[in-house]
């Protein structure tokens, strides 16, 4: 018997960085693989768990309150080297909402400056007002990415942008880009389950993973997620 292919997903800080429907992103990934007849296992990881990142195909981390973000930062520091190696291997690390701030040089919030994981050169500082609003982003040649932002910080970054901003907020007020990409580390301030609301973006990730594993990807767009996306574009964009 041929051993069944399985995709392993880690939901990092599922009980701490879970503020904005983050579990929807895990459902979106799981369903997208299942539609391709690929099995998925999801491990829920949090503080003090032995994380062993290398065994996963996708690591997902979502957004949380500022208090919870700092708890996660404190716990994740010991895993910095392993995260660097994971990203070097071109594996997918998806970060939504303010978890992006963890991977830069520092986070300045509530009048304190916290050393972050220092994996990338960007940094984040609390903005005088919270940044809240709908966003439409450009990503490669895909149809626009839709989403919502609700965050305390602005980010300073000059390269490796993930999205170009079509509508809504960028990393900071001077930039016209949002998010960070290095290899397959994809980080965006978008929340609002990004991967449910953008099934074409989810399929882009799924397709890439499957092709690298030499598995054929079948395009399936007759789903409510695709219809919801189109309806949103019709009502709010075009």
């Amino acid at each position: 018997m041929v051993k069944m292919m399985k995709i392993k997903i880690a939901h990092l800080y599922y009980d701490l960085l879970n503020l904005y429907g983050e579990q929807g992103n895990i459902l979106a990934l799981t369903n997208a693989f299942n539609k391709q007849k690929i099995n998925v296992t999801v491990d829920l990881l949090s503080i003090e768990d032995n994380k062993k990142f290398n065994k996963y195909d996708i690591i997902y981390i979502g957004s949380g309150s500022e208090e919870n973000l700092l708890l996660a930062l404190n716990d994740l520091k010991k895993d910095t080297q392993e995260i660097k190696e994971y990203i070097k291997k071109d594996k997918y690390f998806i970060s939504t909402g303010n978890s992006k701030d963890l991977f830069g040089k520092f986070i300045q919030i509530n009048n304190s400056k916290y050393k972050a994981l220092n994996i990338f050169d960007y940094y984040s500082k609390q903005n005088p007002v919270r940044i809240v609003g709908e966003s439409i982003m450009g990503f490669k040649d895909l149809p626009p990415i839709v989403g919502f932002q609700n965050r305390a910080c602005v980010m300073q970054n000059n390269y490796n942008h993930l999205f170009s901003v079509i509508n809504g907020y960028a990393d900071n007020y001077k930039s016209s880009y949002e998010g960070y990409r290095e290899n397959n580390f994809l980080a965006t301030y978008l929340i609002g389950p990004l991967l449910i609301r953008n099934p074409h973006f989810t399929d882009y990730i799924v397709k890439d993973i499957l092709i690298k594993k030499k598995i054929k990807f079948k395009e399936i767009t007759d789903t409510y997620e695709y219809k919801a996306y189109q309806e949103y574009i019709n009502n709010f964009y075009e």
Partner: peptide, 10 residues
């Protein structure tokens, strides 16, 4: 006027 949908998944 915002239409944030994240709560649906909570």
């Amino acid at each position: 006027k915002y239409n944030d949908l994240s709560w649906l998944y909570d």
